[in-house]
Design a protein around this nucleic acid. Structure first.
Lengths: 116, 116, 116, 116
DNA sequence: TTTT
DNA sequence: TTTT
């Protein structure tokens, strides 16, 4: 079945790189992605999307990107759930990155050129 | 910023259609999307992805689709959070559908034709 | 740079499988993809999109699909150009498939559930 | 049927803005999109993808972008054909833009962070 | 709360 | 836990 995601957004903090027990690099980042439309009272909201990166992609992103960096991510949505300490079921959704592209770090004035 | 999702999967239950106070139709569905790869022990896992549909898209999907229907969804990831009764912060991620395509209901033998 | 395509459409003819001089399987297919909107005079038009498949993807698609099959393709747009016999420059654009998913063969009543 | 494209690339020249007989703005641009992989002899090739923009999207892109600008485009592939003066059938494929996002103009050091 |  |  098809499951494809493409994001361009800004890192909310430095990538958090770790290694699994068997030595696989893994990093988690959160992308702030401003919406292209406003609420009824004119506010631009932002979605905060968690992404999981593996291996070289994780290491390279940790090396080249930091809080505020603009990156493009392609990947797929993944879901899982677990029970927390209090026995409550917690549902987790994030994006498993297949590729990451570094798009810059400057106070970049990205600008929406569409109107429908 | 860019935020695009494309999914093809199966409804885990009948669409749940409601109306907001001001009369907007809204439906929630969950798509079961089998992964295209197996775990290290050969299991095909499935992601369960919640989608929110509005207006005509919500009504049409509720009319034409049911548990087991295969649909294609394009849209964007949205996130929000709230505090539950016990004061715990709950993070919610789902897909805001922009279009929905009905792709059939049969015991459809979808088959992956890729190998990398 | 980012270049991602997702298509669901119908094969206009049986896949055409060949092998390169060094034994790589390659297949060309054309996908008929009906548009989700009508012309000003109410006609639904169709785009005919050429796709190139390689290796296992080519062989599996040739084995499992035929004229009329509905498939999903993810991949990227590629362009090239050459001069024909009369010295005229010919520009060619097609989709390099990264994955192909077989979605059925029946006279499938795919139905658009969106309206904006 | 599904037909979705997402591109991030660089304008090969200034947008070419025109108006149809009935006053609709339309612009054509070509995006240079470097591939994320090399040929067998280590060359990074580039695809040159024609895009058609309409109305506000056309006008805004013509106003804010120029040769070298990096933009993100979402849209769909469209195909058409015609006979040229010599009676030869010419097939044309381009991307009908649904949204355009301006991502900067600097000699932007976009960098691929993936490896597969 | 999960579909075939 | 949120970026500019």
């Amino acid at each position: 079945m098809i499951n494809n995601v493409i994001l361009v957004g800004r890192l909310t903090k430095d990538p958090d790189l770790r290694y699994t027990a068997d030595g696989q690099a893994v990093a988690n980042v959160t992308l702030a992605v401003a919406r292209n439309f406003k609420t009824s009272d004119g506010v631009v909201e932002t979605d905060f999307i968690n992404c999981t990166l593996w291996r070289k992609t994780a290491e390279n992103t940790a090396n080249y990107c930091k809080k505020g960096s603009v990156i493009g991510v392609t990947g797929r949505i993944q879901t899982r759930n677990y029970e927390n300490e209090t026995g409550q079921k917690i549902y987790v959704t994030d994006v498993l990155a297949e590729s990451v592209k570094f798009l810059g770090t400057k106070p970049q004035q990205s600008r929406e050129l569409v109107e429908n």
